[in-house]
Structure formats: C-alpha cells, structure tokens
Nucleic acid binder design. Structure first.
Lengths: 338, 338
DNA sequence: CTGTTAGCGCTTTCAA
DNA sequence: TTGAAAGCGCTAACAG
C-alpha cells in the first residue's frame, strides 16, 4: 500500500496525493476531498522515511540524556515531546547511561537518522562528537555546557543563584555547620553544583563546609549521610546535589534515630515530583524541566526553520521551601510542623 | 555525502560498500578494509531511512507506554532498549498520556515509521488500532491484555499470586481490617489489580475490605488514605495498587501522627527503585520490568525473524518484605525496627 | 567476489 | 490546478 494506490483510487496523480498530505494550498477543495476519502478508505499512512528521503527534512529532533531512570529526565523527556508534538515534529530519545560507548551509539543513531537538531542534556559529551554535528550543520543545544555560536545554543542554569537561595535560607535559620553531598565528581554537572556551593559559602564568609561524594542516587545519598553522621562534627544542615541524594540522606538520618528537621535540615536540588511526598516533604531548589525543554526545543527549531543563530539562554532555579528545613538545634523555638 | 562518495573513494561499486556495511561475507578482506577506511575517512553514516526503504526492514520496534513520568515505565523503557541494542535493533518510545487522542498519534507514528513490531504496555488500547497492526502483519505483544494468536503475544502477570502473597503476609501478621487503595477505575490495569485483591480476600473467607480509589500517583494515595483515616473503621493494613499510591498514603498517615508499621501496615505494588528508600522502606509486590521487557522484545523479535506464532507468557510477581509491614496493633509484641 | 541496475515510497521541479 | 518524471540514498537480484 502506497501513495500510488491512493492516487489510483482517487483518480489523480501521486503528486496531487503528496500535495494533499502536505497541506499544499494548490489543490482544489474537491480534489483534496477525494484524496482524503481515498486515504481514509485505504487507511493509508505515508511512509515517514520515504518522505524524509524525498524532502531532505526529517522533522525529527534528538534528545540525548544520561539516564532515563533518574527521575529528572523523564519529566524533561515528556516536556520536550509535548512541545515537539505541538510543532508537528517528532523526538528521538537516546540514553548514554553515563557510558562513553553508549554515547557514541547515541550520536551515530542521531547521525544515521538525520535528525534536524539535537538537544544534549547530558554534560559528558565528547568534543569530537560535537564536531560531527557541526560539520553536518545540525543545530545543537546544550544544557549548561559549551557556548553559543553558529548553530549551537546553550541553556545555562544559574546554579549560584539556586544554591545561594538555599544557603541563605539555611543560614537564616541559624545553621552554621552546613555540609554538602555532591554527585559523582567525574560528572561535570555534579562538579558545577559543588563549585556553586563552595563559592557561595566563601562569598558569605562561611568556612568551607563538610563535603561528601554521592552518586546522584538514593543509595549514594544514604551512604554519604551515614559517613557524615559518624564524623567528628555533625552538620546541622545538609545540601544535596539532587533530590535523590537528599532522599537517601533522609533515610540514613532516620535510621540513626534523628529527626528532620529538628536535628538536621535537608535541602535537595531539582524538585522532582516525589519530593513533595517524602517524609518530611523536601525543601529543594527547583529547576523547571518544562522551561528547559521549551527553551531547548525552540532554540533548535528556530535554528532550523528561520536559520537563527545559536543563542545563550538562562534558566533560574527557585527555592521551594517545604518541611525538611527548620531552625538549627538550640536556635530559637522550633516552629515547623511535623 | 553518501554511499556513492564512499564507493568512489574506495574505488569499488556502491553494492560493495553496501555489502561491507551490512557485514556480508562475500567481500574480500582487502576490499572490506579499503571500504572501511573510506568510511572512516569520510565519517560516513549510512542513512537509516534509505536503508529501510531499500530493504523493507526497519529494525525499529515500538514501545507504547502510558506515562513516562510514572516511575514504573522508565525502568521498563531502559530494559527494553538495552535488550534491543543487544540485538542490533532500535526502539521508538511513545507516550499515550492516558489520552485517547495521543494514543491515536502513537499508533500512527508506529505505522508511519513502519516499525517491525510493537510492545503495547498500556492497557487502554482501542480495538480498532489493534486491527490496523493486524492487517499490516505487524507483530504485537501486550502486557496483560488480549490473547495470543497469529502475530500477537501476551504477557500475563499473575496478579492473583502477587496480591495473594501480600494478603497472606498481612494476615499472617494478625491483620483483619485490610483496605485497598486502587488506581483509577477507568484503567483496565487498575481494575485487574483490584479484582485480584477482592478475589483473594473472598477465597480466604475474609469479608470484602475497605476500598478507596486513587490515581496511581502519590497525590491520589495521599487523599485516599486521608479518607480511610477519617472513616468509621480504621484499617490496620492497607494494600496499594502501586508504589506511588503507597508513598502518598505513607505521607497521610504520618501527618495524622500515626506510625508505620506500628499503627498501620502498608504494602505497595511494583517495587520501583525509590521504594527501598521511603520512610520506612516499603514492603511491596515486585514486578520485574527487566523480565517483562525481555520477554516482550523476544516475542516480537522472534515473530519477525523466525515467523514464530504469538505466544502466551507468564510473569510472576514476588513479595519484597521491607519495613512498612508489622504485626497488627495488639497482636503480639512488635518486633520491627523503626 | 564485484559491478550494474532496477526499484523502495515519496517529494518536487517543470510543463501543461 | 494537475501530471510526468527525475531524483533522494540505499539494497538486492542478476550478471559477469
């Protein structure tokens, strides 16, 4: 079943069928009507590849993420797809699994499928792959990596502001012993968050806090928190590099028989959906996946459609205060609700 | 840049390049070597669509899910992709968002991209769409819906056994007032789980328990639990239709100042990753996404490759006992660890 | 073992 | 407004 059969049934040429499918305005309403009916009757679905081959446009946008299993990403994927659908485009999602071999696979999938643009939402992207996209003039958008030029856009997250708001909130509650549980230091994104924390403390004249390394998952947060609790100086507040880490930390604290936030305050990062339902609900620095996805898609789409140059975009995180933060022990009456 | 340029550089015909790419054994090692070098040098990536068009095989398998944001699915997606990659195939993921309009979009994407098979992991699939796949002889595999025939396979989850194990565990702990928080009753998958619960109670001679309807998300579990707590008879144990629901319920219980499992025991369903890190860690009926994905992919792949008929497969859930279940209040010493 | 060539299903000039 | 026909990049039958 193909366009020719439709053409035959509608008694027109294949060109006319093609025009109808593509919504050309150079087709008489009557003809269009006839063709539509033939399409309906045959339940014809135009072959996407053949369309792409013929036209040179794939209407496909790539989205490269690290790990679909990390709750931050599914929400991003969903938002990206929703907006792509609005623009009549499609999305090809690929996972790197934080693995450079898989990363190569992701890149070649994108190249082989001739995507019209790629959103690289993982921080670990080898320079040489980027070059492959550049030489083929495929628009790119990064999350907080690389800089805008030609067909490359960049979305930068103001981590300093986000972490700053968190630290301010914590300091305002009287905390002085503030610890940080980072993500895996081999990940650029994790290092950036950690540096924002260190810088923030320094600029406020607070001595460098306790540091532990996690893995951006609950397990790592749990272990890191356990180490923190058995250390010499126990922190009264802990910032985590992401919410999963904070959730793991929460568990370790409870296991020790300590309470959050009465004994220790916790702040996460990302504001994934589940954070509103942890015990207690997590105070966290929210990063809008919706906004990131929208900005990313539009950057790619406008590069492609209007030949726009790459741009530099900024996204502001926002502190979401819930129940996991409270006054430092001994500092004023505790007013939180358990 | 295309196969012809590679052919020219390697001084062979396009057919030879094609053969090299496809790993044909009818090419002299030397020739193959020359072609490989040319490909490297030109950084040539064969156009997937053209390949599919020429060969009639897409090497693409569709995976239709309800909602990427529901933690059950990302793990399924990951497993499915991993196994597809092992077989050198690719995956096209589509979300229905529980919306019938989006569902139609998903189906037409699959049809337009000429996928080699589709795993339908959402329970709400309109009969008429299924027919579209059937008439085009596209292998299908369902999760717990439909029956095996021709090119259609089905994976059935033994909900009765899973729920049975949970009920047995709970009853063994002395509970008699057992409630169930279901998913949205408009979803078949939710109804199936609920029926398994009702049937299980009945077969054990226990009267029909309390029932509340949730939405398979934390918010619904929270609200349903709140209703349960303000009802006349307070249950001492609650089974939830999925883990997110259970997590929401946990929050509602804590807000009332009650403890889990001392005052109320909770059992979830699915065993999503985060369930090991809730407070307390959730006892739940685990469903292996890995197994489901593997079985589903293989069913599709063998239908396609070996022309195998559709099969009926079974997956057994397994109870994972953690900390959210304990003896019914008043029944024996409480021995759980908080 | 290698090359020639006719498609695959659609788009898109160019004419009519 | 419509049709004829030449590709798009690759595969596969057929020759050699």
């Amino acid at each position: 079943m193909n366009i020719r059969e439709v053409a035959r049934l509608a008694k027109v040429s294949t060109a006319t069928v093609s025009r109808t499918i593509n919504g050309s305005d150079k087709v008489t309403p009557e003809t269009k009507e006839r063709v539509q009916r033939a399409i309906e009757e045959l339940k014809f679905y135009p072959n996407t590849w053949a369309r792409a081959l013929g036209s040179g446009r794939s209407s496909l946008y790539g989205l490269i993420i690290s790990d679909i299993t990390n709750p931050f990403f599914p929400e991003l994927v969903k938002s990206f797809e929703d907006i792509a659908v609005q623009y009549g485009q499609e999305v090809l999602v690929a996972n790197t699994n934080y693995d450079s071999e898989r990363m190569e696979l992701c890149v070649s999938r994108m190249l082989q499928r001739k995507v019209d643009g790629v959103a690289i939402m993982t921080s670990e992207m080898d320079e040489r792959w980027i070059r492959e996209f550049n030489t083929r003039e495929i628009p790119l958008v990064f999350l907080d990596t690389g800089t805008a030029h030609d067909l490359t856009s960049n979305i930068s997250v103001d981590y300093a502001a986000g972490v700053g708001a968190a630290v301010e909130h914590i300091v305002g509650l009287g905390h002085t012993e503030i610890a940080f549980i980072s993500g895996p230091m081999m990940l650029r994104s994790a290092r950036v968050r950690r540096e924002a924390f260190v810088g923030c403390l320094k600029s406020r004249g607070i001595g460098a806090g306790l540091m532990e390394e996690g893995n951006h998952q609950a397990s790592g947060g749990h272990e890191a928190m356990a180490r923190l609790l058995s250390g010499e100086t126990r922190p009264t507040a802990v910032l985590a590099s992401n919410d999963m880490t904070a959730i793991g930390a929460l568990g370790a604290i409870h296991e020790r028989g300590l309470r959050v936030p009465e004994d220790i305050s916790i702040v996460g990062f990302d504001d994934i959906q589940i954070s509103a339902f942890t015990q207690p609900a997590l105070t966290t620095v929210g990063l809008s996946r919706d906004e990131i996805a929208r900005v990313a898609f539009r950057a790619l789409y406008s590069s492609r459609q209007d030949g726009a140059r790459g741009g530099e975009y900024a996204v502001q995180p926002a502190l979401v205060v819930r129940r996991s933060t409270g006054p430092a022990p001994g500092k004023g009456e505790f007013s939180g609700r358990r």
